[in-house]
Structure formats: C-alpha cells, structure tokens
Design a protein around this nucleic acid. Structure first.
Length: 550
RNA sequence: GCGCUCGUAGCUCAGUGGAUAGAGCAGAGGACUUCUAAUCCUAAGGUCGCAGGUUCGAAUCCUGCCGGGCGCACCA
C-alpha cells in the first residue's frame, strides 16, 4: 500500500464517520496525507486528520480519532490503528501490504516518482544569465546547479519547461570589455572601468589569433568586442554543459532592440495605461503595483533602459506561450522582485501566477577560513571550471543543491578540495554502487529476479523501513516541485542511503556458499532493485551520476 | 533611514503548526575469514538569537528588539 492510497483510505474513513454522525462532510479537506513518525512506537504511518477536524466538527479529537480508527481497522492491509496523544492516528500495516509497494516501484522504473502536479503548465526558467564579459564563476554556480535541478524536477512533476540564459549584450559593459581586450592585445594597461584578470589576456590573444591583422584595421574595437563576446559565450556554454547544465535558449538582449520587440512591448504597456512621460523621459508607473518607485523605460537622451529590455523580454516570453516565468536571482538582486512583478501587472498579467522570482542567498567563499572577495574586474574570481577541476561535477553540484537557497552558504575552498570524501554525495552514490555490485554478483551466481515475489516475506524491520522510505519518493518529488526546493531530493536521498545501508547490514540478500536461492532471496532482489531505481531517479533529478562502481 | 533576507549542535546545514528538534563532518569508543568498511553500532554534543503574542500544540505563524548579509540609479 502506498502512502497516497493510505491517505485516501483515511479520508474515506473520516467521511464515513462524519456521515454517521450527521456532520457536513464539506469540512473535510480535499486531500490529506500521512506522515512517517520518527518514533517507531507511533506506527508505520500517522495521520493528524482527527486533530484538524475536531474544531470544525465540534467533537473532541480523540473521539473522532477513535471512530475513524474503527473504520480503518476493517480495511485489508491495515494491521492495527492506535489513538495517541491529543488525537493522532497511528497506523500499522501488515507486511504484505507494505511489501506490495516494491512491485509498484520496479514496474514503474525510471518513471517512479513522476507526477502530474504541474501537468499542463508551460514554464520558463531563466537563470545564470551571466554577462558575456567573463567566465562563469562561483556566484552563478549555485543557481546553475539548483536551477537545472529545478528544471528536471518540474519536468518530473509534469510541466513543460524551457530553461533560458539571457545575454546582456546591449549595454556599455561589452564596450568596456572590448576596450579591455584591445588594451591587452596592445600591451597597454587596463583602461579605466575595464576588466582585469588573466582571462582578458587569453581572450585578447585568441581574438588576435583568429583575426590576423586585427590591430591594424580601421575599427579594431568593434572586432574585439564582437569576437570577444563570441569566444566568451562559447566558453560559458562549454563550462555549463560540462557541469551538466543545458539551456534550451540563449536569448540575446540585443535582438530585442534590433527586432523592434522593445517598441512592441512599450506599445503593449501603453495600451494598458501605465506609461507616462516626465522630465523628458518615458516611465512605467510600477508604483501602481507596489513597486517603491516608478521605472524609466526611455531616458532623456532617447536611450532605452535595461528595464525596457526586461519588459520586452517578459512580453516576448508570454507571447511564446509561457504561463509561468521564473526568475532565479541572487540575493544582491532582490530589489528587482517588486519591479518584475509590477511589470507583469502593468502588462495586464497576474504577478502572483505568471511571475515567480526565487532569491538565492549568497555563497560565501572561504579560503583557509578567510572570506574571498569575488570581483570580476579585479580578477579575483573562482570560476566554475576551477571548482569542477577541484572537486568534480558530482560533488560540486550536490554540495550546491543539498541546502535551501534561502540559507546563505559557506564553502571553504580548502575543505571542499582537500576533503572531497566528506561530501554526503558519496554516501548516497555508494549506496547505489553497492546495489549495482550486488546485482552483478547475483548475475554471476545465476540468481535472477523472478516474475513475481511474495511481499509478506519482506517482514524484517529493516526491510519494512526501506520499503516505507521508498514509498515516500513520489511525494518528496511533488513537494520539491511545489515548493521549488530541489534540496529536498538530496536530503531524502541521504536518509534513504542510511536506511539502505542499515538494511544491507542486517539482511543478507544473496545465498552464501552452497546455500540455494530461496523465495526470500527473490523477494530481497525485488527490494534491492526497487532501491536502485529510487537512487538512480533521485540522483538524476539533481543532475548527479549514479555510479555502477566506486 | 526605508526595504528584503538570514540567525538551529564545535563546523556545514535539514526540519511546508504535530509527538522526545535531526543528518553529515569533526572529536570519543566499538564491529571486517561474510553480497563494496566510501559501511554499521554506541555514547557525547542544543537557551532553535532575545522577549512577548496567536492555539489543543510554535524552531515553524504574528509583533517588537538584537546581530549578520544584501538592496534602495534616466548603471548594466
């Protein structure tokens, strides 16, 4: 029996009780859930439904719980139901009902964990969006790992998802970048406000190599700017792909200006009546929608602002059919939240539905316990490539994805490079590798999983723990999608790994010596295969590999 | 000053109103002739920043305060 099936059973039992008592069943929630109590004395699953209904029903919670329990005890698969504390329902399943869940997992295979909570939603995920004036560095990396995991989780929840990387290639930063490259190629010092760092020299040399005689041309700056951007974008794309992060769309800000999309967006906003002129500039009255000040779209000198391009990009996304536009931003950009939401409202949309801005707290980098100040212009950056070189893709992605983006993260370069084995990712991956090894041994012994198994044989406490843990996976995925929190997958996998290792420690799977394979061997092979599937599916959602050997 | 955000074990962090607040790492002790010991077991470690409030029940929700981070452009 799956947790979802049991939850439905609890709801049905409560409905029957309310009907008997002549209480309006409208007080029932649409769905309820059962939780897995930490304390084994509290049963396999627990429900708080009686506590929730008590006030609305006008009955003591314990009395309601007692009546619900009577109903539940009649159902097959339920061994016993206790009432505890103020009105908890503590439910115990029989071994057969618990063990039957293994079959579901194996049968669904790679699809186990997928759901339909976001079915029909067309989602746009914009993240990283690093300026093409330098390599991808650590400040971008958190959302690279988490955003890509979110992409995978949303897909698992049934959404249609496109990930996009916005390229800020229309402003003055690229001019500064181009001037810095030109200066480097000429052996001159970094210009005022320009970019420093070794990569500038490398890119400058690459431009010269690809464009012989460029320094003698009439407008070398234009070539350095354009070629530098091209090389930088290639490098960013390569770094991200190596990190396992693929963007469906790389969207150029410049094309918004060139295609007339900005003008088009201004027309849209004007049509909704939120555009006005003042002090020689054109403004969007975002204060109509709880922004703390209005925003300039066209400056007094006639130039469109960055915000105007933002507006055009948003309108463009909506016109491409995306219902939900996600912006995954760093905490240093949290001031954008209100204006992005107000922008959507000014375009006639519902900011509570069409826009979602997720703020990731800063990653503080330590080296030997001392904070490292990251500055692209000063050249003191840690790049994504350097991080991957040091710890590998799996450890890097996992350590960034395993904690909530709400909490500031501190990474010590020395610790993550020196003590890579401390990373919990290895604990999880090892569980998968152990299973893979066991299954190889089974094949060598000629012990194959049969077409079916007897679920009642999986009655050991460690087996029951493992099965119940496997049964939680779909709701973990659904919750991770609903709350936009990929770290829940990682934390779940760590718990599951512990549960698996304890099972492995207590329960021998394969026959030893001359012993024959038994029905228990077969049942445990089913269980082990189910565990392998969940580890593989869970790690895949995080973009982390599930190794066959370690 | 205004706004956003964070504060949980020595460290890094979990904990979408539920029962005795957890994990990993570090440190102490134990378990390998046995399917991978990158594992398992035991013990130790806490004023959930502080103070009120809401209620059957608060680390979680509300208010205030303290402390850290970040943001408040006709920059991008």
């Amino acid at each position: 029996m799956t947790p979802a099936q049991l939850s439905d059973a609890v709801l049905a039992a409560a409905r029957a009780v309310l009907t008997d008592e002549n209480i309006d069943t409208a007080i029932l929630p649409g769905v309820t859930s059962v939780e897995r109590p930490r304390n084994p004395d509290h049963g396999d699953y627990a429900s708080t439904l009686a506590l929730q209904l008590s006030k609305k029903a006008g009955k003591p919670a314990r009395e309601l719980a007692g009546k619900i329990a009577v109903q539940l005890r009649r159902m097959s698969g339920i061994q016993d139901v206790d009432i505890a504390g103020p009105g908890f329902l503590n439910i115990r399943l029989d071994a057969g009902a618990t063990g039957a869940l293994v079959h579901d997992v194996v049968q669904q295979g790679a699809a186990y964990g997928r759901g339909t909570a976001m079915a029909g939603q067309k989602v746009n995920l914009e993240f990283v969006s690093a300026n093409p004036t330098g390599p991808i560095h650590l400040a971008h990396t958190r959302w690279a790992a988490v955003g890509d995991a979110l992409h995978r989780i949303f897909v698992a929840a049934g959404a249609e998802v496109a990930s996009e990387h916005y390229i800020n290639d229309a402003g003055s930063q690229l001019d500064r970048f181009g001037r810095s490259l030109l200066a480097a190629a000429r052996g001159e010092p970094t210009p005022e406000g320009g970019y420093a760092g070794e990569y500038i020299q490398d890119v400058a040399e690459a431009v010269v190599k690809d464009n012989p005689g460029v320094l003698d041309q009439e407008d070398p700056l234009a070539i350095f700017r354009a070629e530098g951007e091209r090389l930088m974008l290639d490098e960013m794309r390569t770094s991200l792909e190596r990190f396992g992060v693929h963007f469906d769309v790389w969207f150029s800000e410049r094309t918004l200006h060139e295609s007339g999309a900005v003008e088009h967006a201004l027309d849209e906003l004007r049509a909704h009546g939120h555009v006005f002129e003042a002090d020689g500039a054109v403004w969007l009255r975002t204060t109509d929608f709880s922004d703390d000040r209005d925003r300039v779209l066209i400056r007094g000198n006639g130039e469109k602002t960055y915000f105007a391009a933002d507006a055009a990009y948003y309108v463009n996304k909506r016109e491409r059919g995306f219902d939900k536009c996600f912006y995954l931003l760093g905490a240093d950009h949290h001031g954008y939240v209100n204006r992005l939401r107000a922008l959507a409202a000014c375009a006639g949309d519902d900011p509570d539905f069409n826009v979602e801005v997720l703020i990731g707290q800063m990653v503080t980098l330590l080296r030997g316990g001392v904070p490292v100040r990251l500055s692209k212009r000063a050249g003191t950056i840690i790049t994504l490539d350097e991080l991957v070189d040091a710890v590998g893709v799996d450890a890097a992605r996992y350590s960034l994805a395993r904690s909530s983006t709400d909490s500031p993260l501190t990474l010590d370069i020395e610790v993550i490079t020196r003590q890579a084995n401390d990373n919990p990712v290895y604990y999880v991956q090892y569980a998968h590798a152990r299973i893979a090894s066991l299954l190889r041994n089974a094949a060598d012994l000629g012990v194959a999983r049969k077409v079916d198994y007897d679920p009642a044989l999986l009655s050991h406490e460690r087996e029951a723990d493992l099965i119940k843990a496997l049964g939680e996976f779909p709701s973990i995925v659904a919750t991770a999608a609903e709350l936009r929190e990929p770290h829940r997958i990682a934390r779940y996998l760590e718990e599951l790994a512990g549960t698996y290792h304890r099972f492995y420690d207590a329960c021998r799977v394969l026959p030893q010596g001359d012993e024959p394979a038994t029905d228990l061997t077969n049942a445990r092979l089913w269980l082990v295969e189910a565990a392998r599937i969940v580890f593989a599916n869970g790690l895949a959602l995080l973009g982390v590999s599930a190794p066959e050997r370690m």
